[in-house]
């Protein structure tokens, strides 16, 4: 019993610690106890595009397609939401790529590098380019 309980403690420590140790997705702070962190307070804007090719693209009016809550998730760079949303764009005719650009500023207003997401409809794979 005691060992099991200590394992539970270890699990509770490992989950938030993995945010710092693995660093695979800096934007995903859900289980890291990072309330009101510098990441959370970044101001971001997103633009989405339907792509026939990675170069040939038409803008998507995000506000008409998604609830504001999902827009915020895209702005926060929630990768699962980005992936799901871009995957839904593949259902539109002649769309072979779903593209999203995310531009952020730090809490003090300093511009941060843009993030580009590209979802390949045929491979069903998301690529993230910083």
């Amino acid at each position: 019993m005691s060992v099991g309980l200590w394992l539970l403690v270890a699990l509770q420590v490992t989950i938030p610690a993995s945010y710092y140790l693995l660093r695979d997705d800096r934007d995903d702070e859900r289980f890291a106890w990072r309330m009101f962190s510098s990441v959370r307070l970044m101001h971001c804007q997103v633009l989405a595009f339907d792509g026939k090719t990675p170069q040939e693209r038409t803008p998507v009016l995000l506000a008409r397609h998604l609830h504001a809550s999902w827009l915020r998730s895209l702005e926060r760079g929630r990768k699962h939401v980005v992936e799901h949303f871009l995957a839904t764009r593949c259902q539109e005719p002649e769309v072979h790529y779903g593209l999203l650009e995310r531009a952020c500023t730090s809490p003090s207003g300093r511009p941060l590098p843009r993030t580009h997401y590209r979802y390949d409809c045929s491979l069903r794979r998301l690529e993230v380019v910083q």
């Binding site: 710092y20 890291a32 106890w33 962190s37 809490p107 003090s108």
Partner: peptide, 28 residues
């Protein structure tokens, strides 16, 4: 223990440069 872990990590999150400098607090 759970509460201690939460507050402990919250402190760690706030130890990053942007927090320590007061930049985040000014925005908040």
């Amino acid at each position: 223990v759970t509460c201690a872990i939460v507050y402990g990590f919250t402190g760690i999150a706030k130890s990053e440069l942007e927090w320590r400098s007061g930049e985040v607090l000014q925005a908040l």
